[in-house]
Design a protein around this nucleic acid. Structure first.
Lengths: 356, 356
DNA sequence: GATAACTTCTGAAAATTTTCAAGATTTATT
DNA sequence: AATAAATCTTGAAAATTTTCAGAAGTTATC
């Protein structure tokens, strides 16, 4: 009787007997190595829970996947999220599998190709969905019963928000704060530049628009459908300048776009911040690397990674947790790229229509 | 007889019988789940090979670890290596576990703490050792019989080069090429700045020194023991300028150091490339992000990752491959940060001893 | 709406992994 | 050098996973 405590008193065969199924089927359910009819699956899980079968501390995999969807490269932003997620996982004795993948948001979910390593919970226990995702991938992961937490800001198209855990960062509020900051410095001709085809640029333009409207100023948005963020910033800025529009401040949709703006301003002989003030969003190392250093809306990327990891690990350890949504605040980091506009300052309009 | 081909005709129990050992012991050797005395280990491996036991296509893990040793953050350089390695692994149906770790190069190898996930080949089959490593870690990995490939450039201290596969990139040659390029543009007062306590900065200073000596010019090296690369570049450049030394060109040990130099030059009112030309090393996105874009020694980071992955996967699939060393070439990418010095140009010496 | 062709699911048996306790070896201490 | 304490190895048995071939379910076709 007092044999010595086994790692768990309840064995897989006890569950099988109680559920009236074979050992094999129970094993398959418990480690997701193969498909089991939904009702039997449920029967196994229920029986296991009832008998108090130790669903976690068994010696199965302790790896989660960090999905980097639809990105060609690993940007500093996502690097930082990855590092944050890894640190939290490591602290909980989990490892992180780095898994870039590409898929079309239009593909029916059954046709989204899921990497082999995700097909068996023996290997990967859950997924952090970073990069740009859409509902079809979430469906495919749900079908495989993989707990998932997504980076909310970057999901394109409609998705069933109540069914998934997600972590957002408040870039809308950040854009709003940045715009208000410009206003507090006396700026009125404040432009937003971005590619509003992309969710994140669109979200930020909303924040900008709100702040402008609240201040009774007309929103000035230059929305170009260009994929490369630096080209986008460059061309958007260039087009505003060559049209001779009044401009004393630019809110760029992200730091890379801001860099393009820097370049266009330099081309036109305009100084930052003397002639034009600039703010970016994301506050990656790029922001502090620019000369002059860029004022930017900081996203606490390490916290972002940590939060996603945390929600995921909770889902993994307890099968019954409800999906949760968390929104992390952002914060404007003030650097030398902005200056206060004095009442006496003339509005600078360079007329040169320099050809690109 | 014609039963239908099994995934392998030889079973683990055949090996056990032939080797005169228990099933358990053979299992332990074959998946590295626990330590087995070296002679028995060898006996098992030999017997398995002799019987033609399928060492690979069994359904064991297909994951390798990407070790990022002793780095606080994931720099763009290592990001790119990681992405390159992952792509090649994915093409071979392997996944990559992202595994940052910290250890002291002075610790005896038995005391180097190896993450749990590396302790069992059931999880991780091999290691790509990136970041900064030293022999003690390699010993610890060897002890666990984990195939390892290291990033050769970043190994500190002595190590047994003939026992490990390694991939180098020719940064020495790159520094040499960069220096020669300066010379071909007519520069003579060419400085190298770096922190030669760090292996990579030291290697590059060697390349620089060679090129200077071959051209009959005195090497001008500003070697400061500062960890933060940007501060290093800033302070090194500042110190040269404030001493009033002649300087028309700077070879910075890496791109971040070059950025520091940019900032110091801007502080002194010097233009790039009009007054001073600058070259960096690594050619990360930082180089093209600077204004003006930085001429830099490109390291083909994706190839670097790919090569490391390739050597590793070969070692994993065949237990008998010899360690190999590969050196990848580098290439100077010319951007706007350099200009030819005309014979008539006066040598600019700014005398202002601006306090930092 | 029946039948064929195909796919998915399942349990029994086979194969492998893991636990446990005993035996072997190493290390520390006298 | 001898002994005790601690650690490491191992085989047998227990537990789990995987294979295999047949059963059950689906879909396409006539």
């Amino acid at each position: 009787m007092t044999k010595k405590t086994r790692r768990s008193n309840v064995r897989i065969q006890d569950v099988a007997r109680a559920a009236g199924l074979s050992l094999a089927t129970v094993s398959r359910v418990l480690n997701g190595s193969a498909r089991v009819r939904p009702n039997l699956h449920e029967r196994v899980v229920k029986t296991a829970l009832k008998l108090g079968f130790d669903l976690n501390r068994r010696n199965d995999s302790r790896i989660v996947a960090f999905l980097l969807s639809n990105r060609a490269v690993l940007h500093p932003f996502h690097s930082a999220v990855l590092v944050g997620a890894e640190a939290h996982c490591a602290a909980n004795d989990f490892g992180v599998l780095f898994l870039p993948m590409q898929y079309s948001p239009k593909l029916p979910w059954k046709e989204v190709h899921i990497p082999r390593l995700l097909q068996n919970r023996k290997v990967v226990r859950g997924v952090i969905a970073a990069g740009t995702n859409s509902q079809n991938l979430l469906d495919a992961l749900t079908d495989r019963r993989l707990p998932t937490v997504c980076l909310g800001n970057n999901i394109v198209g409609d998705w069933r928000k109540d069914q998934y855990s997600a972590v957002f960062f408040d870039d809308i509020g950040g854009a709003q704060e940045a715009t208000s900051y410009f206003q507090s410095l006396g700026h009125r001709d404040i432009w937003y530049i971005g590619n509003c085809q992309r969710t994140w640029f669109a979200r930020r333009s909303d924040g900008y628009r709100q702040a402008m409207e609240e201040a009774g100023l007309p929103p000035l948005i230059r929305d170009l459908n260009i994929d490369n963020a630096e080209d986008l910033g460059y061309l958007a800025t260039k087009s505003i300048l060559s049209e001779g529009r009044a401009i004393t401040a630019i809110l760029a949709g992200d730091d890379t776009t801001a860099r393009g703006a820097y370049r266009a301003l330099a081309d036109h002989g305009l100084r930052i911040p003397a002639d034009v003030s600039v703010i970016g969003v994301n506050d990656t190392i790029e922001a502090s690397a620019l000369i002059p250093p860029l004022t930017s809306v900081r996203v606490f990327t390490d916290q972002l990674g940590k939060q996603m990891a945390d929600l995921l690990l909770k889902q993994i350890s307890r099968l019954d947790v409800k999906p949760q949504v968390v929104t992390l605040p952002t914060r404007l980091i003030r650097r030398e790229s902005c200056r206060a506009l004095l009442q006496s300052d003339p509005i600078v309009i360079k007329e040169e229509a320099q050809a690109s």
